[in-house]
């Protein structure tokens, strides 16, 4: 019960402070992972992939998943509602004076600062995923060989996917599916 309340509060906070949609929830999800350990860093990376392949944003999906892991179906539902609650309340307030809000120089100024902050934290979150996906810290620690630090086949796949995404305008789902097959075939 205590755990459930703690979880609802954590996801409420995530909903309240993640500005800029989707990936902006990532720094908060990693923070929850570090503080409470309800899910691992690898779980967050996997949830990004699942979110890209299913309807719904990463924040919503991660809260459902973490809630389920902690307290079953009810936990999943409550955690998701906690994440949605702050934006619901804020939008209800803003809906009353829509035009004034949009043209307010204070709001515009705040976003001048919030935008770079948001992508700075998304970059850091990307590095967190890279730590799981592209490098093998324990192999490096064991051997001391710099060549062991990088998972070379993962880096090659990453470069190919990057080029593929630039050249072909396929949906991310296609690239995720291909990467899954490559992962199975080449035993990542």
């Amino acid at each position: 019960m205590m755990k459930l309340l703690q979880m609802m509060l954590a996801f409420f906070k995530t909903g309240l402070f993640s500005v800029g949609g989707g990936l902006a929830t990532l720094p908060f999800l990693y923070e929850i992972s570090d503080t409470y350990g309800w899910f691992s860093h690898a779980d967050v990376a996997d949830m990004i992939a699942i979110s890209e392949s299913t309807p719904g944003a990463i924040g919503i999906n991660m809260s459902t998943y973490a809630g389920f892991q902690t307290a079953g179906v009810i936990g999943g539902i409550l955690a998701t509602l906690s994440l949605a609650a702050p934006s619901l309340i804020i939008i209800l307030i803003i809906a009353r004076f829509l035009k004034k809000f949009r043209d307010n120089p204070m709001v515009e100024g705040a976003f001048y600062g919030l935008r770079p902050a948001s992508i700075a934290m998304i970059t850091a979150a990307g590095i967190n995923v890279a730590k799981v996906a592209l490098v093998n810290l324990s192999a490096y620690a064991a051997s001391g060989q710099i060549g062991d630090l990088f998972i070379w086949k993962a880096i090659i796949l990453g470069i190919l996917v990057f080029i593929g995404q630039r050249k072909l305008k396929w949906s991310p789902i296609v690239f995720l599916a291909i990467s899954a097959v490559v992962g199975i075939v080449f035993r990542f």
Partner: peptide, 13 residues
């Protein structure tokens, strides 16, 4: 499969 998928996620970010 998920190890492969994580590489793709990196690129998406």
């Amino acid at each position: 499969a998920f190890a492969g998928i994580r590489v793709c996620v990196c690129v998406l970010i």
